[in-house]
Amino acid sequence: MASGLAQTINKVLDLCRAHADGLPQKVLDEEIPDLELLSQAINFLLSKQKLVVFTQGDNIVYKEQNTEVAVKFKGLTSEDMLVYQSIEAAANQGIWTADLKRRTNLQQPQINKALKNLEGRSLVKAVKTVTNKNRKVYMLFELTPSREVTGGAWYTEQDYDAEFVDVVKQQCLQFITKQGLADLQAIADAIRKSGITQVELGLEEFKQIMDTLVLDGDVDETMGGETYSSDTVCYRVAKSRIPETSALTNIPCGICPVLRECQPGGLISPETCVYFDQWLSF
């Protein structure tokens, strides 16, 4: 019986090697009609981490684990593997422990143990996210966290670096003022050359900066002009800024925080208004 099992195991492995892109269950069933023996062999191989199971559509497919990987996973329990696979599926987005629990149907202590094992072997790592400060997500050790997790170039140590953004904005604005008209590439090159930042800023980040400058009313977007072709988006200093003063906001009512509660004869009223007193007495 034991030799029969050994034979079957070898046969399964051979079949796997023959079907490099995955051995379907159907082929196995045809080659090894003895179901009892087959299931024993597969269970043995799976427990030794020599075989991995996939699903392709409705079919179950087997593959032989290559030796390197087999070494990496040697000694891991099936629970560890389950956790590992869930983390692997999350790719560079990472996965939170609560989600892990839901995905694997394991108890929290089991997951903690598995994570400890995996982290000890440098298979996975914990990364802090910007969206939820005190929440850690796990991802494979060799991956770099995605922009959603780190927040992109504008975050240092999971904190939004408003000062840094302001500096870059000012630099961009200065460059455009000096240049008159510039496209995104020219702006990016100039800022990178100026060396105000060690952080690698992509065109995408510069686009973001320019969009905010446009929204602030500091620069205008135009199509082409001067040396640029007419289908490149260019930026120039805005002709008309958002007005700094207006008749309404020049009087206290325009910026009054309690304007809604202000009523003639009410608790807050124009006759007794302290803002008016200040305004009229300077």
Binding site: I242, P243, E244, T245, S246, I255
Partner: peptide, 13 residues
């Protein structure tokens, strides 16, 4: 531009 000016001074940049 008047509305934007009012928003700017009332609520900030």
């Amino acid at each position: 531009s008047e509305v934007e000016g009012i928003v700017l001074q009332r609520f900030g940049r």
